[in-house]
Computed example of a mutant assay.
Amino acid sequence: MQLVVARIGRAHGIKGEVTVEVRTDEPEARLAPGAVLATDPASTGPLTIETGRVHSGRLLLRFEGVRDRTAAEALRNTLLIAEVDPAELPEEEDEYYDHQLMDLDVVTKDGAEVGRITEISHLPSQDLFIVERPDGSEVMIPFVESIVTEIDLEEQRAVIDPPPGLIDDQAEIASSRDAAEDEDEGAGAGADGDRP
Rank of each mutant, 00 (worst) to 15 (best):
Leu75Gly: 06
Gly115Glu: 02
Asp85Gly: 07
Ala112Trp: 00
Val106Ser: 05
His99Met: 10
Gly136Leu: 08
Leu104Pro: 05
Ala112Ser: 13
Asp85Trp: 00
Gly111Arg: 02
Glu93Asp: 15
Tyr96Ile: 11
Ile81Trp: 00
Val114Cys: 03
Glu88Cys: 09
Val84Phe: 02
Glu91Lys: 08
Arg133Val: 13
Thr108Arg: 00
Ile117Lys: 00
Arg116Asp: 05
Val107Leu: 07
Leu101Tyr: 01
Glu83Tyr: 01
Ile81His: 01
His122Arg: 15
Met140Asn: 15
Val106Leu: 04
Glu73Pro: 01
Ala112Cys: 06
Arg133Asp: 10
Ala112Gln: 08
Phe129Ser: 13
Glu132Ala: 14
Glu119Asn: 14
Pro134Ser: 09
Val107Ile: 13
Pro134Arg: 03
Val131Arg: 02
Val84Asp: 04
Tyr97His: 13
Ser137Trp: 00
Pro134Ala: 12
Asp85Glu: 09
Ser137Ala: 15
Val139Arg: 02
Glu119Cys: 08
Glu93Lys: 13
Pro134Glu: 05
Ile117Asp: 02
Ile141Leu: 08
Leu104Thr: 04
Val107Gly: 00
Asp98Glu: 13
Gln100Leu: 11
Gln100Tyr: 04
Glu91His: 06
Glu93Val: 14
Gln126Arg: 15
Leu89Cys: 04
Glu95Met: 10
Glu113Met: 11
Ile141Thr: 06
Leu79Ser: 12
Ile81Phe: 01
Glu83Phe: 02
Val107Lys: 03
Thr78Glu: 09
Ala112Arg: 09
Ala74Ile: 03
Glu88Gly: 07
His99Arg: 14
Glu83Ile: 07
Arg116Leu: 08
Ala82Gly: 07
Val131Met: 05
Asp105Gly: 04
Ala82Val: 09
Asp127Met: 15
Leu101His: 03
Glu119Ser: 13
Glu91Asn: 05
Val107Ser: 01
Ile81Val: 15
Leu75Ile: 07
Leu128Cys: 06
Arg116Ser: 11
Asp94Gly: 03
Tyr97Gln: 07
Asp103His: 11
Leu80Asp: 06
Met102Arg: 11
Ser125Phe: 06
Leu75Asn: 03
Val107Gln: 03
